[in-house]
Nucleic acid binder design. Structure first.
Length: 275
DNA sequence: AAAGTAGGCAACCGCGGCGCC
DNA sequence: AGGCGCCGCGGTTGCCTACTT
């Protein structure tokens, strides 16, 4: 016999979360902290499975989630970490502040793996694909390209994905406005709103949509200084020791990104957080 | 303008690990 | 030591939207 389900599914809501459910969940967690997912729905007045609540919080409602497109630096880091760690998305996400494992997993499956394939690299092994396979992939892409002659956006996506400044915005929610109660980390901005994609143009950065606590850290400097600001502010470490260790970590990260012959360093880097 | 197709992403499902009793 | 329950993770599904014909 398998395990019994984590919760009785009878009478529980499934599918898209409503704004009311989100509010209930956020309010409860702000008041009682996260955890105890099994009992949380009942205490919060939600007709949801605890796992569903956890998922919604972790992947969408958490205030420290970074909204906006994944930067080239992050792209590069994801690829490098994936080559070392494989599909261990939570570990990879742990090195990308504000990104969730689900987001990285989706981004990998929809963008990065295809990009690697188009470059003749096996996304699983990160080794060069044998020529016939590469040719097959290219042929496939060419076919798609020819089918998309009038759609340069799609054609480019397969041939020169890195060139396109593709905007990776979070999927629009049905919620129009969410009020997040204050907490220590995000006093400066406690309100964010989301808009449906029908309300915004594709590819256009909707400043309202990303007007959120973490937005000030997004792209606020060259070479990812925004990331450093973010790390400094939200590491949860005491400010004094936080400063140096994060500075080090971040320098290490930048070093790794800059250097081409850094595989050994990267291995050490990866091991440092696997232990 | 409508139907078909493809892409993107939020949410669900099932399993494994870990801690507690 | 073994069973049980909870949590977290990775794989998969299904819905929504944009694009093409």
């Amino acid at each position: 016999m398998g395990r019994s389900p984590c919760c009785s599914k009878v009478g529980l809501h499934r599918g898209q979360w409503t704004s009311r459910e989100d509010t209930l969940l956020v309010n409860y967690i702000q008041a009682h902290d996260e955890g105890h997912w099994r009992s949380l729905p009942m205490k919060a007045g939600l007709l949801r499975c605890g796992k569903s609540c956890r998922l919604r919080w972790m992947n969408y409602l958490r205030p420290d989630i970074k909204r906006g497109n994944i930067s080239p630096d992050e792209d590069d880091l994801i690829i490098r970490l994936h080559s070392l760690l494989g599909n261990r998305w939570s570990l990879i996400a742990g090195r990308l502040p504000g990104r969730t494992d689900n987001e990285i997993k989706n981004y990998w499956n929809t963008h990065l793996s295809k990009r690697l394939l188009s470059q003749g690299i096996d996304p699983n092994t990160h080794q060069s694909l044998p020529n016939p396979v590469v040719q097959q992939v290219k042929k496939k892409n060419n076919n798609r390209g020819s089918n998309n002659k009038q759609n340069p956006k799609k054609a480019n996506a397969t041939h020169e994905p890195a060139v396109i400044p593709k905007l990776h915005l979070p999927k629009p929610s049905r919620i129009t406005t969410v009020f997040l109660p204050r907490n220590d980390s995000f006093d400066q901005c406690t309100r964010f709103s989301t808009v449906s994609s029908s309300q915004r143009g594709e590819g256009a950065l909707d400043t309202e949509a990303i007007q959120c606590p973490w937005s000030e850290y997004v792209n606020d400097g060259e070479n990812g200084t925004g990331l450093l600001s973010y790390l400094k502010c939200h590491s949860g470490l005491p400010a004094s020791e936080d400063e140096n260790s994060l500075e080090k970590l971040y320098e290490e990260y930048l070093q790794l990104l800059r250097t081409d012959e850094d595989q050994l360093q990267l291995d050490d880097f990866a091991e440092s957080f696997l232990i």
